[in-house]
Write a protein that binds this DNA or RNA. Sequence first.
DNA 1: AATTAGCACTCATCCCGCAAGAGTGCTAAT
DNA 2: ATTAGCACTCTTGCGGGATGAGTGCTAATT
Lengths: 380, 380
Amino acid sequence: MALDERKKCILKAVVDDYIATAEPVGSKALVSRYHFKVSPATIRNEMAELEELGYLEQPHTSAGRVPSDKGYRAYVDTLLPVEDITREDAERISRYLSDSLDELTSLIRRASSVLSEQTGYTSVALSPQLHRSQLQQIKMLMIEPGRALVVVVLSAGVVKDRLVRIPDLLDAQQLMQVASAIESGLAGMKLDDITLVTVAAAARQTPVPDSLLNQVLYEAYVSIKQADNLEVYMDGTHNLLSFPEFSDVNKAREHLMTLTSSGMIAGYMNEMKDQEDQGASAGESTDLSEPEPPGAASRPAYTVRIGQEILLDGLQDCSFVTTTYKMGDYVAGRIGVIGPKRMTYGKVISHISFIKQTLNEQIRSLAAGRDRTEDHEDEA
Amino acid sequence: MALDERKKCILKAVVDDYIATAEPVGSKALVSRYHFKVSPATIRNEMAELEELGYLEQPHTSAGRVPSDKGYRAYVDTLLPVEDITREDAERISRYLSDSLDELTSLIRRASSVLSEQTGYTSVALSPQLHRSQLQQIKMLMIEPGRALVVVVLSAGVVKDRLVRIPDLLDAQQLMQVASAIESGLAGMKLDDITLVTVAAAARQTPVPDSLLNQVLYEAYVSIKQADNLEVYMDGTHNLLSFPEFSDVNKAREHLMTLTSSGMIAGYMNEMKDQEDQGASAGESTDLSEPEPPGAASRPAYTVRIGQEILLDGLQDCSFVTTTYKMGDYVAGRIGVIGPKRMTYGKVISHISFIKQTLNEQIRSLAAGRDRTEDHEDEA
DNA sequence: AATTAGCACTCATCCCGCAAGAGTGCTAAT
DNA sequence: ATTAGCACTCTTGCGGGATGAGTGCTAATT
């Protein structure tokens, strides 16, 4: 059932044209715009066959053709024009990302903002998940009687803090004792393995009356657990209003609503997080011939979800291109772009790939900067 | 040039009707819907006069009338139907706001979210400006060699922190020395009065080599200054897509763009911040008779900007209802609602007023909770 | 003097129909 | 296998009543 060379060419041309114009593309326009050496009639026959096979659809009789989800899929998997971002862009972006004040979250946030800016679509990023990283430090700082700041430092170098209420009678020294007891008891443990019980056990021998201790321990525990809170950064949400597919305000509103009910997206992305991306081509199956087109094989992995493949209600007219970023050796989070199915996949993927790469480098160099505080020249 | 009673009645009816329906309102509809005891012809004459006077306008010759900015102004200033939020709403909201974990910013953020949710418009809030509050504590916590967390506590009870790079050679004890030197030197000073020079002076006698000291001092200074950073919280931006006035996608997009280029709104609100709101009626002038309608006088102050009165490009079809909140005795920030000119002013104002009041109470009780750590029963 | 009934007039809006145009599918010729 | 030709379909755009809501004006009424 593989497509012959000419069909591929035509499919590619149709998708390209539709991406560019957002209008159904007809046989005549195709030959004139893409210099085919055959007549419109031939193209028509081919297109009819492509429609038969499910790669194209007609909005109505006597309109041009529009790619189906399957058509986009094939396009993305095997026909994708390889694009590269310009040297200047690459440098500007990596410079912008590299002065992110040592803050992992600010790095991710910026990456997201870069993506939406560069692609013109909506970008989404998941904060890194840290449940597999270890507790390194926990400090408690008395702000005033009854209030304290809990600072949690994780092995990943991530610092989170949180204001809490504590018993008024607890003094600064006791607070410090509790904190250092917890720290020495739990340092090196994975976040996953820390429970209220382990926290309590660690602080058992501190000379602080139980009546005061309990609340503090609870807050410490919550603070540690909260260090792993999943967050979503989104940028350029209103970009999608520029596209004709959302010229209907109600549709647009619905999309925005779905997007900004961030819990949904977070959950969805988080579910995909663990499944590693499949190299240069994406997850879903197609029945086109060559699984490894030349040139694209060297790109970092990414995932493309098209139309119905997205299991989130309200985003079925969209495509969702994502990739993961790592911390150390495990997948930490996911970052991606949401746009109309008629997306400039080539451009988006090149940017996503670049971001993935840069992000991984930056994270690695942040970590390295923490272990050995010298050598900063490991920029790619 | 004062309007007689009947004209006022008619104006009010027109505005009410237009707010409800978003469609030009005609004489016939008016008499039937609002039980006037006169005939449509009389209403027509009156409306013609109201148009002459500038309170109404006609979109085209044979359509009904629509309020002009001046019409809305008069409506807001003297005709506003007094609305009160329900007891349940009031309780739910104040309960929601009161468990804001002691965090001022989270309080403001929640207030903003409540506003947009309750009114169905877009809400905007400015973070409190703290430049007039005093530095109370500054701590520096070594995270690892070369990295520290600077924690700044202000008299307002606000805690801000920031990750910074410090010289690798500086050890934890030196860092603490520097911090406590700065703290004892500057505690009690207003943020406004703290400069790099005063910071340096405070830390002069610490036994830390200058070569290491400078960077730390600078970071401390920046952290202190950043405690006063102006932030904007916005909620329900996409609500405005529900209104027919934004059914044109381009207009909608433009509005969203203006709104989300948060710098503009922040600046604008910040400029208005210092001018205190004028009691129950608003800033701009009108020539209606009674300046103090009964019932509305008891409301907290607020400001209404209508249409052209808003000096921000792109929001000229909107109205902007804001109020201020205080910390101690000075105006700390501003919070408000942006919606179509055809806004349910009564409802919005009642909510804004309630929020203002609740916010002030909460802030006061936060402060009180810090001074005397007892008594929590000062809820209104 | 204020109110109202009556009437002519003005426009937006809706709907219908028609022509134009783009695109297709099919068939027959190359 | 390709292509030219042609009939057919269906959307889109446009003009033209018809509709109807609403106005302004005038003259009659209270």
